[in-house]
Computed example of a mutant assay.
Amino acid sequence: MSAIAINKLFSVEGAVVVVTGGGSGLGRMMANALAENGAAKVYIIGRRKEKLEEVAKGCKGGVVVPLVGDVTSKDSIESIVEQVKADSGYVNVVVANSGHSGPTMHGLPQNPSIANIRKHIMSQPMEDFTHTFAVNVTGMFYTCVAFLELLDAGNKKGNMPPTVRSQVIATGSIGGYNKNIGVGYPYNASKTAVHHLIKMLSIYLGPHKIRANALAPGLFPSDISAPLLAGKDGTQEGAFPANFIPAEKTGDDQDMAGAILYLTSRAGAYLNGNILVIDGGRMGVLNTSY
């Protein structure tokens, strides 16, 4: 088979992958895509056991392994690492996908006064703002770092094509570029931090042959986007006007599958420090720093 044949170029055959937040939304989409396309093991991490088990049951037997854990707890992350180490001994990819929306500006009147704005924000506990960063930034960072030795072992295992080095992949967001409020102040700011941390890790870990990349999704079906979708199926073309999303729809399972398979296969092996935007053109109609 030619080296540029699609079955070779986009193969994740035999890969061992960890996906946090794998019980729903983007994490579920990524876990399904990897399992359906030949990954040897996909460990999905989350706090809700029933959601994790539901995803595992829907995939090829034994490929998706549910592990209950909390990325805001260092002890929990370390425990997960030890479980993966005992089971497989190495990983090729860690997808730090767990996310939290945090406090929003919903509920304010149209054209709010400065008094309205102050009252709304000051009524929100500071701990809620901080927790958004604890999940989206701190949890992401410590997850990536905790698996470094197993990622190094993945390089040495040699189960991937020679030029496909181990990597960490974080789930960022186009919110990290959005200068409007979007989901909320802490969410957007935290995703900006995710993007920058990934670029820093790509340089710092480069000499150790471990890559760092991120996805910056636009609107996809997930717990975070549920309030905006209001129960409708946004994946159908025409669900949104072109001046809101030029593609006129949210992303779907195939869109996310294409992105994660590109990043984790030989096709994306030359990416390092990259923030891969997948948004149907949404940022083109927003006030962004992109």
Results as ranks from 00 to 15, higher is better:
M1L: 04
A3S: 10
I4E: 08
K8R: 09
F10L: 13
V12G: 02
G14Q: 03
G14T: 01
V16D: 01
V18G: 00
G21P: 02
G23P: 00
G27Y: 00
M30T: 04
A31Q: 04
L34I: 09
A35M: 04
E36N: 08
E36C: 06
A39Q: 03
V42D: 01
R47M: 13
R47L: 09
R48D: 08
K51D: 13
K57T: 12
C59D: 02
G62L: 09
V63G: 03
V65C: 10
L67C: 13
V71A: 05
S76T: 07
I80Q: 00
V84D: 00
S88F: 12
G89M: 11
N92D: 12
S98N: 03
T104Q: 06
M105Q: 12
G107E: 05
G107H: 13
Q110A: 13
N111V: 08
N111H: 11
I114A: 14
I114W: 11
N116S: 15
I121Y: 12
Q124I: 13
D128L: 09
F129Q: 07
T130M: 14
H131M: 11
T132K: 00
A134I: 10
N136P: 08
T138H: 07
T138A: 12
G139R: 00
M140F: 08
F141K: 06
L151D: 02
G154R: 00
N155L: 07
K156Q: 12
K156V: 13
N159K: 03
P161C: 09
P161K: 07
R165E: 13
R165A: 14
V168M: 06
I169H: 02
G172N: 07
S173K: 06
G175K: 02
G175Q: 08
Y177M: 11
I181M: 07
Y185S: 13
Y187I: 04
S190W: 02
A193L: 11
A193C: 15
V194G: 05
H195A: 08
H196L: 14
I198A: 03
K199V: 08
K199C: 04
H208S: 15
I210M: 10
I210E: 03
A212W: 00
N213I: 15
N213L: 11
G218P: 02
P221Q: 04
D223R: 09
I224C: 03
L228E: 13
A230Q: 15
G234T: 01
E237G: 06
A239H: 04
F240T: 05
P241W: 07
A242Q: 14
N243I: 15
E248Y: 10
K249D: 09
T250S: 11
D252C: 10
G258K: 06
G258I: 04
I260R: 03
G273R: 06
G273L: 04
I275Q: 00
D279C: 06
D279F: 01
D279W: 03
D279Y: 06
G280H: 01
R282G: 01
M283I: 15
N287D: 14
N287L: 12
T288F: 09
